[in-house]
Amino acid sequence: MREIEFRDAVREAMSEEMRRDTRVMLLGEEVAQYNGAYKVSRGMLDEFGPRRVIDTPISESGFAGMAIGAAMLGLRPIVEFMSWSFSLVAADPILNNAPKMLYMSGGQYGCPVVFRGNDGAGGQLGSTHSWAVEGLYSNVPGLKMVIPSNPADAKGLMKTAIRDDDPVFFLESERLLSLKGEVPEAEYLIPFGQARIARTGRDCTIVSFGRPVLFCLEAADALAREGIDCEVLDMRTIRPLDAAAIVRSVRRTGACVVVDQSWSFGSPGSEVAALVHRECFDDLDNHVHRVHSADVPAPYAYDLEQEYLPNTRRICEAVRACLYKA
């Protein structure tokens, strides 16, 4: 099968959906003439023209709100945040308007908009540009949250996101954009709420989201050399969460480690831990162990930042501790 980069997979998904449906358009900073700050939208202006691939000024609150208004009317905008870190200045439209419109209008107005952009630390960008927003934003009902870990998932999930009638927060990673992977040429969609078993194993279930799934796979390889057989679940979406997949796996392994690049306090990781403790209480041989980004602002220095992340070493330590092999 052909291999393409993560950014190409996202672009293919957007372009295919724009060919399929004229209600879909892309807007954001530098998406058109500049070909995308991270080249995700490269070539799209040439194909679709400036009416459908739209450069905006640096006004996240303004253009996110504009996209929501257009979505209420029935368009299906894709909004690129150059970084999810910049979405914080658009918190009101993306958290107060998009996910609540359907509910507070009594079901009259939906909001089929996709917000997408880079999420997570790892590029030495310092504290303000290194947000992993899944901790903050997954708290809000009414939105869906997608966090792919590889090109094939990114494409299939993006197509589903664009066709979805609810607001979708699509979390990419700048660290993954150049990652190559096999992506089918034929059209396919990946449904939300369906985790992927990235690796099967019998000793411990590792539940993760997005880029840290790759760290989990590295850790699983290292642990295999110690005779520890890990199952790695790539959740793909945080809302909806494939709780059943987690429960099925943990009931089999009897141990669970959650790896989540957001901060630990009130996070997807803590939610999964609560879920597993409730649903698999009698199956567990130890409490759920959790690996998050360190509970500090993201540091700049390379070594500090690597230690800050839920890295392979910290995952290995957590699995060993969970299995009483520390």
Binding site: G65, M66, A67, G69, A70, A71, M72, G74, P93, N96
Partner: peptide, 12 residues
């Protein structure tokens, strides 16, 4: 907050 929405309706 409704002014970005209104601008979006006009865009739409």
């Amino acid at each position: 907050a409704q002014i970005p929405l209104g601008v979006g309706l006009a865009f739409g």
